[in-house]
Design a protein around this nucleic acid. Structure first.
Length: 277
DNA sequence: AGCGTCACCCGGACGC
DNA sequence: TGCGTCCGGGTGACGC
């Protein structure tokens, strides 16, 4: 799914696209085709079509789960949510089912946002800050160390699982990475954030980064194998493995609901009340 | 403040 | 085969 690594991978592939003859950075957007206007979160569809016109793509980046395209006068933000996918295509190539938003470039190529479940959104704003302001730190940022995580954990009295999913706490972690990180950290998803020992905090810091890096290495998580997916789904340790043996200790993986979200963990490696030693 | 619940959305899986 | 139903991802709104 389009969690952080997926977006990172797409941004990377769009940067590299120039090497295979489908450049995007440096291209001028001449027109937009909005086949489902609600794809555009901001501004109105009409204003979007007007304002995007004639702007050059200066750079592509990522913040949290948002893909960030710097244009001449605006910032174009794309959130793929679950099933969204971006492709470059020749403008005269036939449309695929669920191609919802198309940005046509001066050189005759399109950036196509395909989105079967229509959860994704696109923003065109003068200041990216208006959309991104509340996002928490980037887990892979060198400035994000275990002390930063510890300070943030102590600031809340929340269960770890919902906290990790909160984009204002950390940016870019979705349901899969939250479960994978907690397993790597040997922490129960219901543990209270303000009651972690320094060692547990350090383990969580390491685990979050390791889970994300592993996703990156395998080109994204995409659990929904119908859609173009990354290989990380073949490396899940607990996610979607209910009843299967924990890869560390062999105990059957359990699935519970936490805040309406399916949550997978090893009851033996991730005890709610860890033994003190 | 933090939690629960619902709505959004649709393809796939499953039961009958 | 063809229905109906449930599920799940991320997020925002709302009520307690």
């Amino acid at each position: 799914m389009p969690e952080l690594p997926e977006v990172e991978t797409i941004a990377e592939s769009l940067r590299r696209a120039g090497e295979v003859g489908l450049p995007l950075v440096g291209e001028t957007l001449v027109r937009a085709t909005l086949r489902w206007p609600r794809h555009i979160a901001q501004p109105s569809a009409l204003e979007f079509e007007e304002q995007v016109r004639g702007q050059r793509v200066r750079a592509i980046g990522r913040r949290g789960k948002f893909l960030v395209l710097d244009l001449d006068r605006h910032t174009l933000l794309i959130h793929l949510r679950m099933s969204g996918d971006l492709r470059m295509a020749a403008s005269d190539a036939p449309l695929e089912k669920h191609d919802l938003t198309l940005l046509h470039t001066a050189s005759g190529h399109d950036l196509r946002f395909n989105d079967p479940r229509r959860f994704g959104r696109v923003w065109l704003v003068e200041d990216a800050h208006t959309v991104l302001a509340d996002l928490g730190p980037e887990p892979l940022d060198p400035a994000f160390d275990a002390a930063v995580l510890g300070a943030r954990l102590a600031r809340h009295r929340r269960r770890l699982k919902p906290l990790l999913l909160d984009q204002t706490f950390l940016a870019g972690i979705g349901n899969i990475y939250a479960d994978e990180a907690l397993h790597r950290a040997r922490l129960h998803p219901l543990r209270a954030s303000h009651r972690l020992s320094p060692d547990e905090t350090w383990r969580l810091w390491r685990a979050v980064r390791a889970a994300l890096r592993s996703g990156l290495r395998h080109h994204g998580a995409s659990i929904d194998w119908v859609y173009r997916g990354g290989g990380f789904q073949n490396h899940f340790r607990v996610y979607a493995r209910t009843g299967e043996p924990c890869p560390v200790c062999g105990t059957p993986i359990r699935r519970i609901l936490v805040g309406q979200r399916s949550t997978h963990f090893c009851p033996s490696c991730q005890p709610l009340r860890p033994r003190r030693r």
